[in-house]
Amino acid sequence: MAERAFAGFRTEYGGDPAGYWVAPGRANLIGEHTDYNDGFVLPFALPQHTVVAAAAARRPNWSAWSEMNGERISFDDAGMAPGAVPDWGAYVAGVVWALREAGHRVPHAELAIASDVPLGAGLSSSAAIESAVLTALADLGDLDLPVDDRPRLAQRAENEYVGAPTGVMDQSASIRCREGHALFLDCRSLEVEHIPFDLAGDGLAMVVVDTRAEHRHVDGEYADRRRACEEAARRLGVPALRDIDADDLPAALDRLPDEVLRRRVRHVVTENQRVRQTVELLRSGRIRDIGPLLTASHASMRDDFEITVDEVDTAVTAALSAGAYGARMTGGGFGGCVLALVDAAFADAVAAAVTGAFADRGFTRPRSFTVLPGPGAHRLS
Rank of each mutant, 00 (worst) to 15 (best):
A23N: 10
F369P: 09
T314E: 06
A132M: 06
V316M: 13
A319N: 09
M1D: 04
G333A: 07
G376F: 02
R234E: 08
F197I: 07
A324Q: 07
V133K: 05
R216M: 14
G19N: 02
T370H: 14
P146C: 12
L123A: 08
C337L: 01
D310L: 15
T364Q: 07
M80L: 13
T34S: 02
L137Y: 03
P375K: 14
H194P: 11
A246M: 02
A128M: 06
R262V: 08
D247M: 11
S131P: 07
W62K: 02
D38M: 09
E259S: 03
H108F: 14
C187T: 12
A81H: 00
I307D: 02
A251P: 06
V207R: 14
I244R: 05
L241S: 01
V147W: 14
V275F: 05
F184N: 09
A114L: 03
R264K: 12
A138I: 00
T211F: 09
L137F: 12
L261P: 01
E221T: 05
Y161R: 13
A98C: 03
P107Y: 02
I195F: 10
L143Q: 08
E231H: 08
V168E: 01
R105A: 15
H181M: 01
P107E: 13
A114H: 15
D144F: 10
R225D: 06
A232K: 11
P257F: 05
D310G: 15
S284M: 12
H215W: 07
T166P: 10
D87Y: 05
V208S: 10
V208K: 13
L204A: 04
F197Q: 11
F369W: 15
W62H: 02
P292F: 10
H181L: 04
D313S: 01
A240H: 02
D87G: 08
R152L: 15
F369Q: 13
D210S: 10
H49F: 01
E67G: 10
A154Q: 10
A246I: 14
V268F: 02
A23E: 08
G15Q: 02
F40D: 06
S125L: 07
R283P: 00
G356W: 04
D142M: 04
A54T: 00
L294N: 13
A228H: 07
L236P: 03
W97D: 00
G31T: 00
G167I: 10
D343A: 12
G220C: 00
L199N: 12
R26E: 01
E306R: 15
G8K: 06
T135E: 12
D202R: 14
T270W: 00
L294Y: 09
R302W: 13
A27F: 00
S174E: 05
V269D: 03
I287Q: 03
P151T: 04
V192Q: 11
D219M: 06
R226N: 01
